[in-house]
Amino acid sequence: MSIQHFRVALIPFFAAFCLPVFAHPETLVKVKDAEDQLGARVGYIELDLNSGKILESFRPEERFPMMSTFKVLLCGAVLSRVDAGQEQLGRRIHYSQNDLVEYSPVTEKHLTDGMTVRELCSAAITMSDNTAANLLLTTIGGPKELTAFLHNMGDHVTRLDRWEPELNEAIPNDERDTTMPAAMATTLRKLLTGELLTLASRQQLIDWMEADKVAGPLLRSALPAGWFIADKSGAGERGSRGIIAALGPDGKPSRIVVIYTTGSQATMDERNRQIAEIGASLIKHW
């Protein structure tokens, strides 16, 4: 067993022997301040990774656009098919120029040779490549099948209805392509620590998230040296922004954090800054 596999296998073990965790309302004060600064709703939840206990939450059962955070769930569904012998990570998928959609920095470079399922998941999570996500959605049967996968996990809230990039439209009061912070946090925890996926697939999923290259201005910008984070960000229309993450000190994750916002007129930089400040408060009061 590799060191990384050992780390993920012992996530519940280490967490069980940690000192009790206590909620700190100071972080919620910052979440509410972010709402004021952005002029928009902000949803927040913080779960203990081992027990699933909610440590703090704000608007945990209000719907927010998922945006690209759905790509972690998508690759979880792909990995479940791999575990069941219905898919192979090494299978190569070929596609054409007509398949390319807006923001496809990886797939646009491989029109000639195609990409493997493993490479597509890596591109979808680490670079948020939209064509990679659409190609992977095709392998599982489309958005409705991802929703069905989530329902089978016990998540009857999260739903995907459309493809990239239309799913980022974020129309107010439109339930399409949305989740709730509580539902997303619980589902992410199941994917990373539950028995739904094999140990190898859980490790692969967290490795992809740990290698995320496009979430630097968010929670990662607030992390002290030595902290662990595996995350996936999302951005959408109407001032929408979000991030889902597993993080913790001492090089291992111990909490799940989900943050979503929508309806702001603020710039992307300002949305990023507010999420980073929430992260800084979380870490300060850990």
Results as ranks from 00 to 15, higher is better:
residue 76 G to C: 07
residue 179 T to W: 00
residue 191 L to I: 11
residue 111 L to A: 11
residue 64 F to A: 01
residue 196 L to E: 13
residue 251 G to H: 12
residue 59 R to L: 03
residue 55 L to F: 10
residue 129 D to H: 00
residue 64 F to G: 01
residue 43 G to A: 08
residue 246 A to M: 13
residue 150 L to R: 01
residue 180 M to Q: 14
residue 162 R to H: 09
residue 225 A to L: 11
residue 267 T to F: 08
residue 230 A to Y: 00
residue 264 S to Y: 06
residue 185 A to H: 01
residue 108 E to P: 07
residue 228 F to I: 08
residue 65 P to Q: 03
residue 149 F to T: 08
residue 38 L to G: 07
residue 108 E to Y: 11
residue 200 A to T: 14
residue 251 G to F: 09
residue 132 A to P: 03
residue 81 R to Q: 10
residue 165 P to D: 07
residue 189 R to G: 12
residue 245 A to V: 04
residue 55 L to Q: 08
residue 138 T to C: 10
residue 107 T to L: 08
residue 47 L to G: 02
residue 54 I to M: 14
residue 50 N to H: 14
residue 214 V to C: 07
residue 233 S to K: 03
residue 134 N to Q: 02
residue 153 M to E: 07
residue 109 K to Q: 15
residue 51 S to H: 09
residue 119 E to D: 15
residue 187 T to M: 08
residue 267 T to G: 13
residue 230 A to M: 07
residue 46 E to H: 08
residue 144 K to Q: 13
residue 32 K to D: 05
residue 221 S to H: 11
residue 125 I to N: 00
residue 267 T to A: 12
residue 226 G to W: 05
residue 191 L to Q: 00
residue 141 G to C: 05
residue 158 T to P: 02
residue 119 E to V: 00
residue 102 E to F: 11
residue 159 R to I: 06
residue 231 D to V: 04
residue 256 I to V: 13
residue 78 V to Q: 04
residue 43 G to P: 01
residue 281 S to Y: 11
residue 31 V to L: 12
residue 161 D to H: 06
residue 50 N to D: 13
residue 256 I to P: 00
residue 156 H to M: 13
residue 279 G to R: 02
residue 124 A to K: 01
residue 207 D to Y: 12
residue 176 R to Y: 08
residue 194 G to S: 14
residue 69 T to A: 02
residue 236 G to K: 03
residue 216 G to Y: 07
residue 239 G to E: 04
residue 61 E to I: 10
residue 241 R to N: 05
residue 243 I to E: 04
residue 35 E to N: 02
residue 252 K to H: 11
residue 64 F to K: 01
residue 276 A to V: 10
residue 253 P to C: 09
residue 153 M to H: 09
residue 210 E to L: 09
residue 215 A to I: 05
residue 279 G to T: 06
residue 259 I to N: 03
residue 267 T to L: 10
residue 49 L to R: 06
residue 166 E to F: 13
residue 30 K to M: 10
residue 39 G to K: 13
residue 257 V to H: 01
residue 68 S to C: 04
residue 185 A to D: 02
residue 83 D to E: 11
residue 270 E to H: 11
residue 210 E to H: 10
residue 227 W to R: 01
residue 116 T to I: 06
residue 44 Y to L: 10
residue 175 E to C: 12
residue 285 H to S: 11
